[in-house]
Amino acid sequence: MSFFRAEDITISFGGIRALSQVGFEVRQGEIFAIIGPNGAGKTTIFNCINRFYDLDEGAFFLEDKDISRIKPHEVAEIGIARTFQNIELFKNTTVLDNLILGQHRSRRSNLFTETLFTPFVRKQEIRGREKAEEIIDFLELEAYREQRVINLPYGVQKTVELGRALAMEPKLLLLDEPSSGLNVEEAEDLSFWMNDIKEELGITILLVEHNMRFVQQVSDRVLALDFGEVITQGSSQDVLNHPEVMKAYLGEEDAVA
């Protein structure tokens, strides 16, 4: 059984092939990075998993179930959470409430049981708040707990978004350029947290990233993409030193010289 895999995924936008026969497999409990220059199709992969686009060919499988035809909001339901390159938070809401909203899919209640505030609803509410507090602890967000997101600095907003994704208690966590816009210290924190998410929470991470140093620091395995095609994949050491990857990033050797 494979944990998560992409099989021959292909998608074109008006004649341009954004992804062409891309296939990879993410093992349970690892950090898997997708790298590539601008426009390589990295974020497109995420948008396909999230059912923002329909695939032309191929399919994604989570625990061997085909997940490429479900509705967009069901992606959360099956245990996939995501963060965005350009932060998508509920900006006029507090940090705490953003985290609680992350649990939307796991709550089981309706108008009737909520009006009566049944013991079951009560238990969920308590559990949800405990979970949110755990995350606030984990990501060191105590100082911002009751603040509205819109007033927070960029780096903190990124952390809140990570927290909201964790609140969903996902099996698979998709991080879109998690280190972009962070300073050195914040990126350092993030790499520690990602390791903890993997080791302590047992959540598998799939990330798209630009920053090579960061990728080298955090990821177990890497897939390199250019013009929508797979250049190579394997252990992070091998991929980052692969001549084709160097070429995609640095250009032809004689062109440099």
């Binding site: 967009p72 909001h73 959360a76 998508e88 938070l89 900006k91 006029n92 909201r164 969903m168």
Partner: peptide, 11 residues
């Protein structure tokens, strides 16, 4: 507040 984010919360 944010349609995109709402969808990814499972709404």
């Amino acid at each position: 507040q944010n349609q995109l984010a709402a969808v990814y919360m499972g709404i």
